[in-house]
């Protein structure tokens, strides 16, 4: 699934980033960044209701390629700047976490599922 497909499926707005044709292979939905850091998969997207700089840094450490803020939460300029520096695509969707994850999952984007032991 491409980032552009995620955007369309979630009626999302692009906050920053322009490479929307990149392929997303897995996704993770959480407000706890350490739970996100426990899982590793390539080319992943992060869905979260948490809005702070650590969301972008966590995604960057995990080599994630997109962050989706749920419930129309809009990041501040400092967060957008961090995302730009790391080449991350940031989206904002009006949908709630459960719904957003469900839509992506049922359209073929499966979860991480693997713990790096």
């Amino acid at each position: 699934m491409t980032i552009n497909e995620i955007k369309q499926l979630l009626d999302a707005e692009v906050i920053c980033g322009d490479n929307l044709e990149r392929e997303v292979l897995s996704a993770c939905g959480s407000d706890m960044m350490s739970d996100v850091l426990a899982y590793v998969k390539d080319q992943a997207a992060l869905l979260t209701g948490l809005v702070n700089a650590q969301v972008i840094r966590t995604a960057e450490m995990m080599d994630m390629i997109a962050v989706v803020f749920v419930r129309s939460k809009k990041p501040g300029q400092d967060i957008i700047e961090l995302a730009r520096e790391s080449g991350m695509v940031v989206l904002a969707t009006p949908k709630r976490m459960y719904e957003a994850c469900g839509i992506l999952y049922s359209n073929g984007l499966k979860g991480n599922g693997e713990i790096n032991e």
């Binding site: 407000d31 706890m32 960044m33 350490s34 739970d35 850091l37 426990a38 979260t48 948490l50 702070n52 650590q54 969301v55 966590t58």
Partner: peptide
């Protein structure tokens, strides 16, 4: 803030 879940040291 998204941390303090008791996963830091285990991670």
């Amino acid at each position: 803030l998204g941390f303090g879940a008791g996963m830091g040291l285990p991670n």
